[in-house]
Write a protein that binds this DNA or RNA. Structure first.
Length: 854
RNA sequence: GCGAGAGUGGCGGAACCGGCAGACGCACUGGAUUUAGGAUCCAGCGGGCAACCGUGGGGGUUCGAAUCCCCCCUCUCGCACCA
């Protein structure tokens, strides 16, 4: 363990013998972060400084960070995320905004339940204990949360409204039940979310996960696919990267559905294709092994056994390896044929391992000449290849000598009346032609699938429905909400504890009053996080999900900060939920998050911190050794927010040194400055006062812009450091003789403290109070800079010859161009590089440089 | 394969809209102070003796390019038999 005195050793001895040198004796205090931080945290709490209410007189600013799962341990990723948020929240407050900055707990989820299975501690107890621990950690970091708005998603007061909304969604058909294939762990006897399957294995017991067909609850997110996609194009406050990921995830393709009638029997096979222009080249059909017709077509024929064996084999294969890159394409002929609707040819129907049931119709028209997969398949099984699209400028392609499919658009050939058309036009015409015959329709296909929200787990919000043998699925009456999780459950039995709880399962049908069976699945935890930002606006409201007036005042969130790992799931679900609530008349906004900041990971030794790599840095240890201010400061200074941050112990030392440097400077100057008021006027006459004054205003300008506009939190720290370096250059004797007024010096150090306060609020408040101030810095207005202080009377002009810097000129800011040119040409160094030749051209950029072209 | 982002000293990173490359910090070196320093303060710190050369490599536009354009290389992330 680190020794606390290590960090302070410099002070211990220094303090003993301070006071000599400059003829003064003062008892100086050493910087003890713990003392300072705990003191100020208590003051802030006592003043209730972080509480916020609606205020029509001030502009609102809703800033939040993604809430954590209460694991019981704050990690560096949290520290970074919340430090970024806290700087911005404090900055906005000091600039006059009414800032909502809440925190809560994404409290449902598997880890608590797994802990219960292993240790016997109830998930609720486990979760509450963890929350208490993390609250202490967050408070110890000094984050400015309004704790009165704390949300715990596992509280019945919260999930009650989630159940309520579920019922509304059920009534509108937005929540529905269907059979689907899910990840099933045989060891744990439960469904696993996709993100809980690691490399095809259960993340807990490492047993192979198998697909299993189960009835599940879904939310109809696909209903909003088009709107969710379109809005991506207008969300200028989100990183392009995230929008692209969402667009890809939604995955819109325009195409058509085409019916291939079956030969020798009733019915047909419907395919989805984006390449209607290649229809004349479709020489066989491929079905997914899961396709209902796959087995049906083979049944009774001589290929039945072979087809069954193939389908069984493929379906047993792990889904993951089935979609891997090196998966070899194979298939089996079903013995059946269908008819190409434009050529009237009989084409064989295959079952192919690379066709997936989940996309389109689970059936693909195979065009080997123009699709690489079909091409490989055709070569392997010796199926005909027919070229029907020629690349621009090519008038013939021999199918036999083709080495790969031509997948581009081109000019149609061998396509009956459509030959000669361009691909794009042909797609439309061929679809229209078949539409008339009732064999096709133009459709849009999305990759996005409906959101499966049921989980066969205990620690989640119960889905509020009952099953009645007579009346079917019945939503629970609203007055019976919340459907509470029973506490007396057995976790050791395996399987879902709710299903094994007879009193929970036993229910009455709200329709016929007869006996019914309660749903024992719980909701995906992503459901809770899809609306918690609405709930923060009125967390104790008990008449509905949230108070309509308050939600209208605060929403949308002005800035949302979190990790990129939620780029699709959580952020897409929240966007969906916001629209559902809007369409129910409960919200007036379309989008929940106006601006999104995705912060980078915290890494150590080049890798993400993880227990298995043994490179975890514990925030508690950092606080113990350096304090919260240093921990915050380093995590903000070492990299810009969006980039990954390499944790460096030496870097942390540097941040700690910087804070000590400010502390020490004030120790040395306090007596000189204690009775002085800060200078508050125009640029003072005479040096060094004017220079220091300018530096102060330049710093205000830079820090304000870096935090407020550019979100470059790291460079703002650099700017403050520069100002502090400048303060260390101040010559005490010049102050004594009056060349540098004490008031200017006082203004400078006060500015340092104000600008620093969002980053290191405790030490800033301590030193601020030490200067005699009563109010904490959070209640002090942010300083403004004077324009005229940024304009220097005398500027350094760069002099280039042929684009290379050769000299510099000190000139008056408003010196006319002619004068400047004359001075530049007279310059000795310039003359050397001109070697007597007259300049061909002179480029003058006012205030910046002059370039002489020889 | 497709899409996005990135490549700058020994390291983390600055450099706004094309105008002094390397701010600030770390590491390192020297000095001061000190019984001592792994503390503090001050100074130095891309390469090269120099002319000069330097922002992944090559070309281009421009008076002038880390920044804009074209080609290539490398890395990171996302998607990926999507029909």
């Amino acid at each position: 363990m680190l020794n606390r005195t290590d960090a302070f050793s410099g002070f211990e001895s220094r303090n003993e013998k301070r006071g000599g040198g400059k003829g003064e004796t003062m008892t100086s205090r050493k910087y003890n972060p713990h003392e300072v931080e705990e003191k100020w945290q208590a003051v802030w709490e006592k003043r209730g400084m972080f509480r916020v209410t609606e205020d029509p007189k001030r502009p609102k600013y809703y800033l939040m960070e993604m809430f954590p799962y209460p694991s019981g341990n704050l990690h560096m990723g949290h520290v970074r995320n919340y430090s970024i948020g806290d700087v911005l929240a404090r900055y906005r407050r000091m600039n006059g905004w009414n800032v909502l900055h809440p925190m809560g707990w994404d409290a449902f989820g598997m880890p608590a339940e797994n802990a219960a299975i292993e240790s016997g501690v109830h998930p609720a107890t486990h979760t509450d204990r963890n929350i208490q621990k993390m609250i202490r950690q967050l408070k110890r970091m000094g984050f400015s949360y309004d704790w009165d708005r704390e949300i715990n998603t596992s509280a019945p007061e919260y999930y009650r409204w989630e159940q309520w909304l579920f019922i509304q969604m059920f009534r509108k058909g937005l929540a529905y039940r269907k059979s689907s294939e899910v990840n099933w762990c045989q060891q744990c006897q439960t469904v696993l979310a996709n993100e809980q399957v690691e490399g095809g294995k259960c993340w807990r017991c490492a047993r192979e996960v198998v697909p299993r067909e189960l009835e599940q609850w879904f939310f109809r997110i696909t209903e909003y696919a088009q709107e969710l996609l379109e809005e991506c194009g207008r969300m200028d406050g989100w990183p392009e990267r995230v929008l692209t990921m969402q667009k890809n995830w939604i995955g819109r393709s325009e195409g058509g559905r085409i019916l291939f009638p079956l030969s020798d029997r009733e019915g047909g096979i419907e395919v989805f294709t984006t390449r209607q222009d290649t229809l004349f080249g479709a020489t066989f059909m491929s079905l997914a092994p899961e396709h209902p017709l796959a087995m049906a077509l083979a049944e009774g024929g001589d290929r039945e056994r072979e087809v069954r064996a193939f389908i069984d084999r493929i379906r047993r294969q792990d889904k993951r390896s089935r979609v891997s890159e090196d998966y070899e394409k194979e298939g089996v002929f079903t013995g059946a044929y269908c008819t190409n609707p434009v050529t009237d040819e009989r084409i064989p129907v295959f079952v192919a391992n690379f066709v997936v049931m989940e996309y389109g119709t689970g059936a693909v028209m195979a065009v080997p000449a123009h699709d690489q997969r079909d091409f490989e398949f055709a070569r392997r099984y010796d199926l005909p290849v027919r070229v029907v699209v020629l690349p621009e400028g090519v008038d013939h392609l021999a199918a036999e000598s083709l080495e790969e499919a031509f997948e581009g658009d081109g000019i149609l050939t061998d396509s009956g009346p459509f030959s000669g058309l361009e691909s794009a036009a042909a797609r439309k015409k061929i679809t229209a032609y078949l539409e008339e015959k009732g064999l096709a329709e133009a459709t849009v296909q999305y990759r996005l699938r409906d959101w499966c929200i049921s989980r066969q787990r205990y620690w989640g919000a119960p889905i509020p429905v009952v099953y009645c043998d007579r009346c079917g699925i019945q939503p629970v009456p609203e007055e019976d909400l919340p459907i509470r999780l029973p506490m007396d459950v057995d976790f050791q039995a395996g399987g879902s504890p709710l299903a094994a709880h007879p009193e929970f399962v036993k229910a009455t049908c709200p329709s016929c009053q007869g006996p019914a069976r309660r749903e024992t699945d719980t909701m995906d935890t992503f459901v809770e996080s899809s609306w918690y930002f609405d709930r923060y606006t009125s967390p104790h409201y008990d008449q509905g999900m949230f108070d309509p007036e308050k939600v209208d005042y605060w929403m949308p969130v002005d800035l949302y900060i979190g990790g990129i790992e939620h780029a699709v799931l959580h952020l897409l679900y929240s966007r969906f939920y916001t629209r559902v609530l809007r369409d129910m008349g409960m919200l007036k906004v379309d989008e929940p998050f106006r601006n999104l900041l995705t912060q980078g990971m915290v890494i150590k030794d080049g890798a993400k911190m993880s227990k298995s790599k043994g490179n975890v840095v514990d925030p508690d240890a950092m606080i113990r050794r350096y304090g919260a201010d240093t921990t915050r400061l380093f995590s903000l200074f070492a990299a810009p927010p969006e980039k990954d941050l390499e944790w460096s112990e030496q870097g942390v030392e540097g941040a700690f040194r910087f804070l000590q440097r400010i502390w020490r400077w004030l120790e040395e100057w306090r007596e000189e400055l204690i009775d002085v008021s800060p200078y508050d006027g125009p640029v003072p006459a005479g040096e060094p006062a004017a220079s220091l004054y300018r530096k102060v205003h330049e710093t205000i300008y830079r820090v304000t812009r870096d935090i407020g506009e550019r979100l470059h939190l790291n460079t703002a720290v650099s700017a403050i450091m520069e100002l502090v370096n400048e303060l260390y250059q101040v010559d005490r004797s010049r102050v004594r003789e009056g060349a540098l007024e004490r008031s200017v010096l006082r203004m400078a150090i006060e500015t340092v403290l104000i600008l620093l306060s969002p980053y290191a609020p405790h030490i800033a408040d301590e030193l601020w109070a030490g200067l005699g101030h009563e109010k904490p810095l959070l209640e002090v207005p942010w300083p403004t800079f004077r324009e005229e202080a940024l304009r220097k009377d005398e500027i350094t002009l760069v002099v280039q010859v042929n684009g290379k810097v050769r000299s510099k000129l000190q000139v008056a800011r408003d010196l006319p161009q002619g004068e400047i040119e004359r001075k530049a040409l007279e310059d000795e160094k310039v003359q050397r590089f001109l070697s007597g030749k007259p300049p061909k051209k002179i480029v003058y950029v006012p205030g910046r440089l002059i370039n002489i072209v020889a």
